[in-house]
Amino acid sequence: MTSAAPLLAVRGLNAWYGEGHALHGVDLEVFAGETVTLLGRNGVGKTTTLRAIMGLIRTRTGEVVFDGADLMRLPLHRTAHQGIGFVPEERGIFATLTVDENLVLPPVVAEGGMSVAEIFDLFPNLKERRNSPGTRLSGGEQQMLAIARMLRTGVKMLLLDEPTEGLAPVIVQRIGELLVTLKKRGMTILLVEQNFRFASRVADRFYLMEHGKVVAGFPVGELTNRMGQLHDVLGV
């Protein structure tokens, strides 16, 4: 798969929060069908990287090319239409919308997405509670909903920010199974994750971030050899 052009290519990405310089030239590539995990301590810029790719942070420089489209030039609301979906860390479930409404909120951007019926087959819990306000769901259900609503849109790639944060182990396992299912369906995923065990089970490749930069990249096979380095950088 490395022979083809990457689906997402990020080169020299810088980003600022107000005066604060948060990213100092991030380089990374994600190929179609891959699941890639960004590792790093709190505050090294993992979330910022996802938000800057998506265009949620506008004070940014560098290059972000997705599927041949230059994302740097697009207004925020055109980005998703290139086929890229974002699941934020805080999940972004809307309190004034029902589960159903939350599910169909993101516009369909391409063919090949799942139908609402298919999604409900995958997430029976959500179907049961389809008419209750989105924020009445449990944390795990909200996370499921946050991912589920992207599946309808037909995006080729998901940016997932800490999907397991604060969830019970049994839910984490279910989310892991879900990501594997998505991968089998051909979904490309860029994942930010603190839960190292979880990440090592779903990812094909890893990038390690420090001080707003990517400092290393390696496939899952090298994981055992890299444990020393990871231990130093992550403290795991």
């Binding site: 055109r78 239409h81 972004g92 004034t96």
Partner: peptide
């Protein structure tokens, strides 16, 4: 209306979903 309500809560995210919030 659901776009409207969602954008009232979090306009940036709704725009990131591909809704033309402006």
């Amino acid at each position: 209306g659901s776009y409207l309500r969602a954008a009232t809560e979090n306009p940036r995210l709704v725009q990131a979903f591909g809704v033309n919030v402006p």
